[in-house]
Amino acid sequence: MPDTISITVPAKTTTCFVVATEREPGDARLAMRHRLAEPFAAAVSERLGTSRLAVTSYPADGSPWDLAAATAAEEADTESEARVRKAVHHIGVTALLPVSDQPFGAQVARAVARALAGAVAGVVVDLHTAQILPQTPGEKPHFALADDWLGVSLPPEEGHCSNGDDSINGCSCVEFTTRGLRRFGLPELQMSGVACPHDLAALNIMRTTAQRLMPIAQLPGQQILSPFLPLASDDLAAFWGVKESLWTDGPLPVRLTSLGPRLLGVGPPPTFQGTLNEWLWDELPPVMYELLGCITDPVPS
């Protein structure tokens, strides 16, 4: 195993959202501006029409964006999926951003997409995660990866195996691969061979690892990583945008492996002698098996 892992954070990254609508866009940009709140309104005035914030519109049958694989972030939201399929217009919001402008620049682009969707009764598709975003009144001013920036989630219940074996190593059905980290210049993460009973614990490991790597997104150029990454309680808390401590024990070490130019594997450290699923069962803080979500801390006014 190499002593280090080398990744390259590009100087600029592109983020793109597409509004799918059945209405004629008309002067949607003007209507969009009235729906924007600070701090995004001022930023849009400075950026709109530049490479840092471009808005373009196409008939759906001539669109450069293929939304056929877009799925709702919330499983029960089949209505939004149907609206994407029936859309007759696509409005794209694209931003080419220096890493120093992340994640705020991506928030500005998504705020514009949400405002456009409100103006034309459309739905927003995040091209990086291939997810249809939940409909909300506007973009939150604070940033948290948990706010639909990371496209990794539990598999559907019907995706679980039916062999009835709930033992620690009963199966290896689940594979997690993140989507969305590349917009911040980071490689995506993958964990495979997870047994169905451990899927939530593995998901929380992926979330925590993604958050741990986020500071590197501010450093363009070649970055040298240790293959051993200590995950702390603060990392999982920051993923959810909360300040409370989520476990009291020390850091949880994980091992990173290079699986490709833009993909890192996540697994147990080499000091653990058992299987991946034994590690997930034996070594993780209990919160990893319990935490489905957190209420974001309010931002002081």
Score class of each variant (00 low, 15 high):
residue 2 P to T: 00
residue 5 I to C: 09
residue 5 I to Y: 09
residue 7 I to P: 03
residue 10 P to G: 11
residue 10 P to R: 04
residue 11 A to S: 15
residue 13 T to S: 02
residue 15 T to Q: 13
residue 18 V to T: 12
residue 19 V to R: 08
residue 19 V to W: 03
residue 22 E to W: 03
residue 23 R to N: 12
residue 27 D to A: 14
residue 31 A to L: 15
residue 32 M to F: 14
residue 37 A to D: 13
residue 38 E to K: 10
residue 40 F to T: 02
residue 42 A to W: 10
residue 45 S to C: 12
residue 48 L to I: 15
residue 48 L to R: 14
residue 50 T to M: 08
residue 52 R to Q: 13
residue 53 L to C: 08
residue 54 A to E: 14
residue 54 A to I: 08
residue 54 A to Y: 10
residue 55 V to D: 03
residue 61 D to I: 06
residue 62 G to Q: 11
residue 62 G to C: 09
residue 62 G to I: 08
residue 69 A to W: 12
residue 70 A to C: 05
residue 71 T to P: 03
residue 71 T to M: 13
residue 72 A to I: 01
residue 75 E to H: 14
residue 77 D to V: 01
residue 78 T to F: 14
residue 81 E to V: 06
residue 82 A to G: 02
residue 85 R to T: 11
residue 88 V to L: 11
residue 90 H to P: 07
residue 92 G to V: 05
residue 92 G to R: 08
residue 93 V to W: 05
residue 93 V to P: 02
residue 93 V to C: 06
residue 94 T to P: 04
residue 97 L to F: 03
residue 98 P to S: 00
residue 101 D to L: 00
residue 101 D to R: 00
residue 106 A to K: 08
residue 110 R to Q: 14
residue 113 A to H: 09
residue 114 R to Q: 15
residue 118 G to M: 05
residue 118 G to F: 07
residue 123 V to L: 10
residue 126 D to F: 06
residue 127 L to N: 01
residue 128 H to F: 01
residue 128 H to V: 05
residue 132 I to P: 03
residue 134 P to G: 10
residue 134 P to T: 08
residue 136 T to K: 12
residue 143 F to M: 10
residue 145 L to R: 01
residue 145 L to C: 07
residue 145 L to Q: 07
residue 146 A to K: 00
residue 146 A to R: 06
residue 147 D to R: 12
residue 147 D to W: 05
residue 148 D to H: 12
residue 150 L to E: 02
residue 152 V to Q: 02
residue 156 P to E: 15
residue 157 E to N: 00
residue 159 G to T: 05
residue 164 G to S: 12
residue 165 D to E: 09
residue 167 S to N: 00
residue 170 G to M: 09
residue 176 F to S: 09
residue 176 F to H: 04
residue 179 R to G: 09
residue 180 G to I: 02
residue 182 R to C: 07
residue 182 R to Q: 14
residue 183 R to D: 13
residue 184 F to G: 00
residue 184 F to N: 04
residue 185 G to P: 05
residue 188 E to W: 07
residue 188 E to S: 09
residue 191 M to K: 00
residue 192 S to R: 15
residue 193 G to T: 01
residue 193 G to F: 08
residue 195 A to N: 07
residue 197 P to C: 13
residue 199 D to F: 06
residue 206 M to R: 02
residue 209 T to W: 01
residue 209 T to D: 03
residue 211 Q to M: 15
residue 211 Q to T: 11
residue 212 R to E: 07
residue 217 A to K: 04
residue 218 Q to E: 11
residue 218 Q to S: 14
residue 220 P to A: 13
residue 223 Q to R: 15
residue 223 Q to V: 13
residue 223 Q to P: 03
residue 229 L to H: 07
residue 232 A to N: 10
residue 238 A to Q: 09
residue 238 A to S: 13
residue 240 W to T: 08
residue 243 K to D: 15
residue 248 T to P: 01
residue 249 D to P: 01
residue 250 G to D: 06
residue 252 L to M: 11
residue 253 P to M: 05
residue 254 V to H: 02
residue 255 R to D: 06
residue 260 G to D: 11
residue 260 G to K: 06
residue 262 R to E: 13
residue 265 G to M: 11
residue 268 P to A: 03
residue 270 P to S: 02
residue 271 T to P: 07
residue 271 T to F: 01
residue 272 F to R: 10
residue 276 L to Y: 00
residue 278 E to N: 05
residue 281 W to R: 11
residue 281 W to Q: 10
residue 283 E to A: 12
residue 284 L to R: 05
residue 284 L to F: 02
residue 287 V to N: 04
residue 290 E to Q: 14
residue 290 E to R: 14
residue 293 G to L: 14
residue 300 P to D: 06
